[in-house]
Design a protein around this nucleic acid. Structure first.
Lengths: 242, 242
DNA sequence: GGCCATCAGTTGTGATTCCAACTTTACTCA
DNA sequence: TGAGTAAAGTTGGAATCACAACTGATGGCC
């Protein structure tokens, strides 16, 4: 009873459950359209629709000729986690992700010093990462870290792990989000047409009450979208009946 | 030439252009499936797909039996704008949006005082708004405003307009986003099951360099989703060829 | 005038079929 | 053995037909 739900939702919910419960690990192949029709006894339309919904949720990712695979769990909101998908996703769809990482030393600008709660002009390690998809720059991240945390040998992109090794535990991430290109950030490398909207994320990683790293991330808006999922049509309402 | 694009994308782009250029104002009806098939000379599948894409973009909203209409422009990311859709959207899909607004005076808690850059225990106007959909509470917002800005007669939900009338111009909104339920916020009114993820937005409206209002917004994550739109399949890549 | 039933129109969902483009695998042949 | 080729499988796109549930408006009836 209570099973007047659309057919495709049955497929969606079953696959989603398997993914969220870990039965299907990231990278695992998803049954193809035809396999779904046989396995669930549904039509091709329903199978295709189910795959589309899951893909749009970000749980799976498809590739022509190759099939769908479980994506790294995007979960819900954290921008930093979504950003972590960059490399994985680009690979998954056959683009070549690259990134330039340039690290140098600098004196903390006043705004950066405030964010890191250190004295202005303190020495910081500045890391500038340009993310590229097939050579085209699509994302820019500039991170600042007090030199005291940087032993100079590690990959600065893995602050969390390194700090974890130092006995510090990252407890929180705060993010300030703007919808524009702020002045102090060099965004010319992204080669954006004038007037394009960008997401500017000021992100600070905290260990306890101590900021350990802060970064500016510039993301053109056509890569991100905050969708207001309504509990109704076209939505996927994460199993409302259970 | 250069028109090997999918057919449905032609429809999507044309309608989207009309919407973004203002030819189709918010509330205006969108051609129905059958009208699209005739108007654009495409099949029903393409028409349906186009409408689905636009709906998922948030540009239009459909209602069984009634048709699609242009939604208030959600643009891309701003949470506060997405939130502003609450009432409109609920109406559009036939739910009854209501909200309780309770206003009282209080002394600023230390954290609130910092956010408003006023002295702790200064008098503030506190507004607690519970958004409901068909009676079910789905969103909670608690705002704080220095009493100096509140003349006591206006609707506090329209801070921007009121301040605009006072000659102040809101220039910016900063948002801190957490993915948890913080302690100081009363979230029991939302009647959330334990462990449910929520979006906690600390939002501050600025007029110049002066904070004029700050608020905590609690949104269960099943209402919002940050989708990482890939420049590839199922995406709608906002006219990449132009 | 007011109320109710009917009816055309619309959306959401579904089945079925087909095709182009692509990937992967297996196979053939030099 | 190695390279090129063929075949099978997969996705994205598309056409066509169908049906249930719902909305809005029309018109008839009291």
């Amino acid at each position: 009873m209570a099973n007047s739900d659309p057919v495709y939702l049955r497929v969606v919910e079953d696959l989603r459950r398997q993914i969220t419960e870990g039965l299907l690990q990231p990278g695992a192949p998803i049954p193809s359209r035809h396999q779904i029709t046989r396995k669930y006894g549904v039509g091709e339309t329903a199978a295709r629709h189910a795959l589309r919904v899951l893909a749009q949720e970000g749980l799976i990712i498809g590739r022509v000729g190759s099939g769908h695979r479980v994506r790294q769990r995007p979960d819900l909101l954290p921008l930093h986690r979504a950003q972590a998908h960059f490399s994985t996703d680009m690979h998954a769809i056959g683009r070549r992700p690259t990134c330039d990482v340039k690290t140098d030393s600098a004196e903390a600008r006043p705004d950066i010093a405030i964010r890191l709660r250190i004295a202005a002009q303190s020495p910081v390690t500045r890391t500038r990462i340009v993310y590229r998809s097939d050579g085209k720059p699509v994302q820019l991240a500039v991170s600042y870290e007090p030199v005291v945390y940087n032993d100079g040998t590690d990959d600065i992109t893995q602050v969390a792990h390194r700090l974890g090794g130092n006995g510090l535990k990252l407890t929180e991430v705060t993010e300030h989000v703007y919808a524009r290109v702020p002045q102090p950030v060099e965004s010319d490398v992204l080669d954006l047409p004038a007037g394009v909207h960008v997401l500017h994320v000021e992100r600070t990683h905290w260990a306890g009450d101590k900021p350990v790293e802060t970064s500016d991330v510039i993301i053109p808006c056509d890569q991100f979208r905050l969708v207001y999922t309504l509990p109704a049509p076209y939505g996927d309402q994460t199993s409302p009946t259970r």
